[in-house]
């Protein structure tokens, strides 16, 4: 494969063409914060955590959706980017009702980890305290909108990998919600195959299996990519 040279965080690298900045960084051990990215799913650039500075481009670009190009000089950890990542993290927490102490994902939550990584010790913005439903109608799983960050990983896992298209998004602005079918209770969905991919794709405690309590949650988001790889195998 042809190689091109780029500079990321003052490190000169020879990398494959055709990959995204995020893929290159992951391969090269350069940490980039992400929330809506999940290996195996189409990247949408929604969480804005992976924004990087590229010399010669006057706006920040999301690493997950931007293809690397020759001679790019990329910076991933400038003071500005770190500051913005912390604000993003704060806005995630302030948007809905993330009460870690009563959450099933406490201690195993990507959102918590994001908070630690962005050194967010408190949230400077007023909490919005929206009224959010908890859908317990599915026999095995729960959807708790209080803990949803609208990364849409479940939507993409369901549509792109399972092909069921149970999940979608309704409303707009801060009132967006993930919905099952046409906003019917999850348990009454005619498209859901109960495959559980969304449970593993969900980075927080928004979708979780009913039979567990705090401390027992085990999510394996990597199974999405593994499944895709296994399907490619000629068995």
């Amino acid at each position: 494969m042809p190689k091109i040279s780029v500079t990321i965080d003052d490190k000169k690298l020879d990398v494959d063409v055709g990959k995204t900045i995020l893929e290159i960084c992951k391969e090269s051990g350069i940490e980039i914060l992400t929330m809506c990215h999940l290996k195996g799913l189409t990247d949408v650039g929604a969480c804005r955590l992976c924004l990087v500075e590229i010399e010669g481009i006057n706006k920040l670009l999301s690493a997950c959706t931007t293809k690397i190009a020759a001679n790019m000089i990329i910076r991933t950890k400038t003071e500005k980017i770190k500051r913005y990542q912390r604000i993003t993290s704060e806005l995630f927490f302030a948007e809905r009702n993330h009460v870690c102490s009563v959450c099933v994902a406490n201690g195993k939550c990507d959102l918590q980890k994001l908070g630690y990584k962005t050194e967010m010790d408190h949230i400077r913005y007023p909490y919005l305290f929206p009224e959010c439903n908890v859908d317990t109608s599915h026999p095995w799983y729960v959807l708790d909108h209080n803990r949803c960050i609208m990364c849409t990983r479940c939507v993409r896992a369901c549509g792109e990998v399972e092909g069921a298209h149970n999940w979608n998004v309704m409303n707009r602005g801060y009132q967006v919600r993930v919905i099952s079918d046409f906003d019917t209770p999850w348990g009454e969905s005619v498209t859901c195959t109960s495959c559980g991919k969304c449970v593993h794709a969900c980075p927080t405690g928004a979708i979780w299996p009913k039979a567990i309590v705090q401390g027992q949650l085990e999510k394996k988001p990597e199974i999405i990519a593994e499944l895709i790889e296994k399907r490619k195998m000629n068995l």
Binding site: V44, G45, A46, C47, R48, T88, L91, F92, A94, E95, Y125, P126, L128, I149, M150, V169, N171, R172, G173, Y174, Q175, V176
Partner: peptide, 21 residues
Amino acid sequence: CMDESCGKCVPCRVGTKMMHD
């Protein structure tokens, strides 16, 4: 802008609401 934000990205979805408030 808050009402018309599509809600996809965090800065616009939550940021416009915060700024409005």
